Amino acid sequence: DGTFRKLAKEIGKPELGTDPRFARNKDRIANRDALRAELAAVFSQHEAEPLCNRLLAAGLPAGPVQKIDQALTNPHTIHRGDVIEKDWYKGVASPIRLERTKPNLRRTPPKFSQHAAEVLGEFGYSSDEINGLVDKGVVCGPQRKR
């Protein structure tokens, strides 16, 4: 509840922190739609990155929703060592880790449609049937067809 009041103050709407509809977590849940409308109106007036930086500086947990390419090049991501690479794969490591545990990747995820033929084969499809499905665009082969 204190964190919410601090947020309300930081976004220039301290009255939200004392509004009875939002006073406690259970009140905010019960009045979720009204709270969402209030916050959306305020957040629409700000750029995500500067607002997040301001909230972080105030000790509030915050972060913008980013596309993967933005997340991979974000200074915070790089500082934390959250970019993980192995062979052809590059991605963001899990942020969940034990103290002083460096993220690692034991194996790469499968490539796009890498196991499609294998899985279809396990369901009884023949190689010719699978190739026919790929040719028709019903099933994606190793190369995406658009």
Rank of each mutant, 00 (worst) to 15 (best):
R97T: 05
K90P: 12
R80N: 08
W88F: 09
I96T: 07
K90A: 08
E99W: 08
E85S: 08
E99H: 11
H76L: 06
P95E: 05
K86C: 03
K90E: 08
E99K: 10
G81F: 11
R100G: 10
T77G: 07
L98S: 14
P75G: 03
P75W: 00
I84F: 06
V83S: 09
D82R: 03
E85C: 03
E85Q: 11
V92H: 06
N74G: 01
V83R: 13
N74I: 01
G81V: 11
R97I: 04
G91E: 10
L98H: 13
V83L: 08
L98I: 09
P75R: 03
G81P: 09
I78D: 00
D82T: 01
A93C: 08
K86Y: 03
T77C: 07
T77M: 06
R97P: 03
K90T: 15
K86W: 00
W88N: 11
H79G: 04
R100W: 01
K86F: 06
T77V: 09
S94Y: 12
I84D: 01
R100K: 13
K102M: 13
P103I: 01
V83Q: 10
T77I: 04
H79R: 09
P75A: 01
A93Y: 08
P103C: 02
D82V: 01
N74M: 01
D87L: 03
Y89M: 14
S94R: 09
P75C: 01
Y89F: 15
R80W: 07
Y89D: 13
R100E: 14
A93Q: 09
P75L: 01
D82N: 14
P95S: 06
